[in-house]
Amino acid sequence: LVRYRTISKIPQITLNFVDLKGDPFLASPTSDREIIAPKIKERTHNVTEKVTQVLSLGADVLPEYKLQAPRIHRWTILHYSPFKAVWDWLILLLVIYTAVFTPYSAAFLLKETEEGPPATECGYACQPLAVVDLIVDIMFIVDILINFRTTYVNANEEVVSHPGRIAVHYFKGWFLIDMVAAIPFDLLIFGSGSEELIGLLKTARLLRLVRVARKLDRYSEYGAAVLFLLMCTFALIAHWLACIWYAIGNMEQPHMDSRIGWLHNLGDQIGKPYNSSGLGGPSIKDKYVTALYFTFSSLTSVGFGNVSPNTNSEKIFSICVMLIGSLMYASIFGNVSAIIQRLYSGTARYHTQMLRVREFIRFHQIPNPLRQRLEEYFQHAWSYTNGIDMNAVLKGFPECLQADICLHLNRSLLQHCKPFRGATKGCLRALAMKFKTTHAPPGDTLVHAGDLLTALYFISRGSIEILRGDVVVAILGKNDIFGEPLNLYARPGKSNGDVRALTYCDLHKIHR
């Protein structure tokens, strides 16, 4: 019993810090008490220290592992850092350059016999395009090294910054494609005289377009951006097909006994025919423009016929181009109408809503002055909100995010209106959640004399007048207030005048 009563005193000691020596009952000389009392004092002292730490809000209350900052290894790049964003855009520009100039170089340097010394005699450094290609190869190699040090988000939505895990993730992902696209074939085969082989191998750079397509997928929600990307894709495919079309004609031209190829026909049409040795002929500019003209006309199913396939190889390629053109029509131009419709969806919704308003007016036989006010209010409210119901949009977000959005939407009023000066951010967040926005066209009466005042109004834009009878008592403008002081009276009061809008007004109100 003594032991039980001794232990039962522990909660009292913990909360009230009572010393055991003052209790005459606990001072009985028993061996059990002498053993338990020192333990009680020690526990009391420890609990006292913990309570003191909690009340003082000291940093040592938290466990040590929670006080440590997340460790980022040296030379690790955050995937959302500004440097990584700028670097990704730079790589994107280099990939676009590669997609345009690599097929052009591979096709127009394929057994090209233009006048001038061969590239091997001039030297590697004197070729501007080769120098640019070398810079692109170096940048792609540097990009691989950067990807080995860039964080990523795993399946659990955690940012991984450990170098080993980053390397394994990159090896399992895009490393092989990036490595093949970054191989400097110019340096590996330079001086061997195989410019045709170098041009063909350099087309491996186009593998990076797969990554670019995935990154550009984030802009699919913007109709104008999608339309622009589709047109660029169409032009890029036409450019690639033009390079292939020229390569076919250029390879067949020296081996044909009869002059029936499209390059021969082009030379005869523009007065620059090929001679018996295969030299001469149109310039590279004429060849490229004509090839691009043929691919565009074939892809769009126009086909004027002034550039036509004559050999079997050219006919087979033309059939493939027609098939590609039909697929592009289905996948690209078939979506253009939907994209344009999405661009004008706001206008369509406006006309639909206006039609419903006019049908309501016609069905209920609203008189002319009231009908005009109804239409003007709808037009003004639509121009202010673009038909978007803010309350319906915010309803799907958590309250903390709703408060931040409301604070942002009402920031101008909260910053410049005098009653809100000096208020804490928590108070402003709470008030912003209570605001209701209303609009009024010129001549609209917001409050009639004798109406119950259940709200306090803040003028965000425009001006109003307060009338008693036919006498203008006051004219209020931006950041002015009218209405009933909230919670100042037990019952809502009545208006002693009319409140009429002089201009288009936007008002925020808080109800009782």
Rank of each mutant, 00 (worst) to 15 (best):
P163K: 01
A423C: 10
V180T: 13
S105T: 08
E157W: 10
I244F: 01
E221F: 03
Y222C: 13
L292P: 01
N275H: 04
A247P: 01
I91T: 06
G249W: 03
P82N: 04
T150E: 01
D186P: 15
K418S: 09
V159F: 05
M390T: 04
H169G: 04
R218A: 08
P117D: 04
G303S: 01
Y104D: 01
E196S: 13
R74N: 06
M139L: 14
E157H: 04
R358E: 03
A119M: 05
P282D: 01
W174C: 03
A213N: 04
K172Y: 06
E375D: 04
N368F: 05
F296T: 05
I138F: 08
A155K: 14
E359F: 02
I270W: 03
Q402Y: 03
N275I: 01
L446K: 01
K285D: 01
E252T: 03
H264N: 14
R208L: 04
S298I: 15
G280T: 03
A167Y: 01
A423T: 03
L414E: 02
A119S: 13
L201P: 03
R358N: 07
W174H: 03
P442R: 06
Y219S: 05
T437Y: 12
N391D: 03
L227G: 01
M433I: 09
A440N: 09
R342A: 06
L200W: 06
N310F: 01
Q415V: 08
W245L: 01
Q402E: 03
L129Q: 08
L92P: 01
I260E: 03
S220M: 09
G334D: 05
R74D: 06
G191A: 05
F185C: 05
K111V: 04
H79M: 01
G426S: 05
A107L: 01
G223V: 04
R342W: 09
R259Q: 13
G280M: 01
S331E: 01
L413D: 01
F294P: 01
R218S: 05
Q269P: 01
A235L: 09
L197S: 03
K172T: 08
T445M: 09
I189S: 13
L343F: 14
N391F: 10
G173C: 05
E252P: 01
W75E: 01
